[in-house]
Each structure stands twice: as C-alpha cells, then as structure tokens.
C-alpha cells in the first residue's frame, strides 16, 4: 500500500470516494447500454425495413426517423444535456446524480447506435432478402434469421465501439453533476490540481475500454463466421 500512497497521495486520501465514482461510471455505462442498445437496435431495424422496397417500405416514416436521427446527432452532447433538463426531471425527478446523467446519454446514444446498426445491416447481401422471400419468409423472419444473424459480427463490433462512446459521454456528464470518474477528475484533478487523481481516473477508464474491446474480440473469435 505504501507504493500506492507515494504514487497517488491524493487518491489515497479519498479512496472511498474514488471507488464510489468508479462504480458510478460502471453503473452509468451499464444502464445506458441496456436502454440505448435495445431502443437503438429497434430504431436501426426500423430505418432498414422502411427504406427497403422489398420489406416495409414507407417513405414518410423513413424520412421522419432519418431526420430525427440526423438532428439529434448534430447537437453537441453538452448542449443536449442542457436541452433535455425538463425531460430528465420528468423521468427521474432530479437533474443531478448518475440517474439524471443517464437520460441525456441514452438520448444521445440511440441515434448514434441506430445509424450504425442500419449501416451494418445494409452490408448484408441484399440478394438474401429475395432468397428468403422466395422461401416464403415474412419480414420478421427475414430480419431475425437473415439480417441480425448475418450481421452479428458487425453488430458486436459497433456495440463495443458505442460502449466506448458511452464511457466518454458519461465522463462528460459528470462535469455537470452526474457523478462518476469524470466528475472526480474535474473536482479534484482540475480544480484542485491533484493530477494523480486525474491520472488514476484515466487509467481506470482505459481499463474499462480495454475490457469492452477484449470482450468484443473474444465473442467475435468464438463466432468465427
């Protein structure tokens, strides 16, 4: 412990708070991921099927979804958080803390993820749709057994990528009272010049990112095809 104390004297002083912040970050990333990936996946599929003339082609619906996705993606996250204050209060009854941070992150990540889902699904050989239709398959089965199956490697890849984006946004959310490692690094590292806190927070964040990437690589390896 003595080496740690010499290297990170300020962290040692707030060790409980540091662990607490790490857990907050993990919590924010995890909960956001669950909501954003579920909704984003559906939105991505909706974009795909409403655009494809062989599936559930609907120009109006596609255009609306497409514009919403583009719009939200164009708003800088820090401004989006400010914009969404009322919504956040409505959903979680507060505007500070980790739960309050999760709302804008989910909203920001959904279109980001949905667009990537759409792109990954568009990479699936379009001829497979015709093949499936020739077998008498409906839209649901085509999406499930053709698109999601054939694109599974791509989906894992973008999910890992998006998880890393969530980590980054969660740190940013920390600055405006969201808690987590971002908050800690600003409060102690930036405002009180305790660089060792910033440094260790960075290390922990890197660890989370590394872990995400390793899991993604591992799953891809297991799947092979």
């Amino acid at each position: 412990m003595s080496i740690f104390n010499t290297l990170f004297p300020n962290v040692a002083a707030i060790s409980d708070e540091f662990i607490q912040s790490t857990l907050e970050t993990v919590y924010m990333v995890f909960v956001t991921a669950i909501f954003a990936f579920t909704i984003g996946l559906f939105l991505g599929i909706a974009l795909l099927v409403t655009k494809n003339e062989k599936l559930l082609y609907n120009k109006v619906v596609y255009n609306i979804l497409d514009k919403i996705v583009n719009l939200i993606r164009s708003i800088p996250f820090i401004i989006l958080m400010a914009l969404l204050v009322s919504l956040t209060r409505f959903i979680v009854h507060t505007t500070i803390g980790t739960n309050a941070a999760i709302v804008p992150i989910v909203i920001a990540i959904i279109p980001f993820y949905a667009r990537q889902v759409e792109n990954v699904l568009l990479d699936v050989d379009i001829n497979l749709v015709e093949t499936a239709q020739a077998m008498g398959w409906g839209v649901f089965k085509i999406v499930w057994s053709v698109y999601l199956r054939e694109a599974r490697k791509g989906i894992i890849r973008i999910t890992a990528l998006t998880t890393i984006s969530i980590v980054s946004l969660s740190a940013m959310a920390g600055v405006v009272g969201g808690g987590g490692l971002g908050n800690l690094a600003i409060n102690y590292g930036y405002n009180r010049f305790q660089n060792d806190v910033t440094f260790l927070a960075t290390l922990v964040i890197l660890l989370i990112v590394l872990l995400t990437q390793s899991i993604s690589t591992l799953i891809t390896k297991i799947l092979k095809h």
Partner: peptide, 9 residues
C-alpha cells in the same frame, strides 16, 4: 440464383 445466396454464418 447466379451467386448462390447462401448464408455465410
């Protein structure tokens, strides 16, 4: 089909 259209996975 000409290009077989098998599922690669």
């Amino acid at each position: 089909f000409q290009h077989f259209n098998l599922m690669e996975t």
